[in-house]
């Protein structure tokens, strides 16, 4: 690696950093977006080939398989499900723990129990 010996002018170095930095940021995010535009379908295609052993052209495999099903529809359905599941609570019985138990015999009601076991 070569080192540029002491640039005395800070401002000019600043411009170097400004331009190269902006270029790198743009470059990085551009590569990322290009990858997801073009690279991802290829990866998914390869994955499909490996798992299903079926020959298909890249153009046949669409990332956007279901054009009709958009995020908005998904949002509407999930909102409906959410509302429905929340609603269910209204029909539940409020009494959850107290249950009436009837027993034929209990020491509480027995006279003989009471006479033998003094408190």
């Amino acid at each position: 690696m070569t080192h540029i010996p002491l640039i005395t002018d800070q401002i000019s170095e600043g411009y170097v950093i400004l331009i190269s930095g902006l270029l790198i940021v743009f470059g990085a995010l551009l590569t990322l977006s290009l990858f997801f535009k073009f690279g991802l379908p290829i990866i998914l295609y390869i994955y499909k080939v490996i798992t299903k052993r079926k020959d298909k052209k890249i153009s046949e495999i669409k990332v956007d398989a279901d054009e009709e099903f958009t995020g908005e529809i998904a949002g509407a359905i999930s909102a409906a499900i959410h509302l429905y599941l929340n609603e269910q609570h209204d029909h539940e019985s409020a009494i959850l723990t107290i249950k009436q138990v009837k027993k034929p015999y209990s020491p509480w009601s027995s006279k003989i129990y009471g006479t033998q076991h003094r408190l």
Partner: peptide, 8 residues
């Protein structure tokens, strides 16, 4: 993905 450029 093109919206990524706005972040840049």
């Amino acid at each position: 993905p093109k919206l990524m450029l706005l972040g840049a």
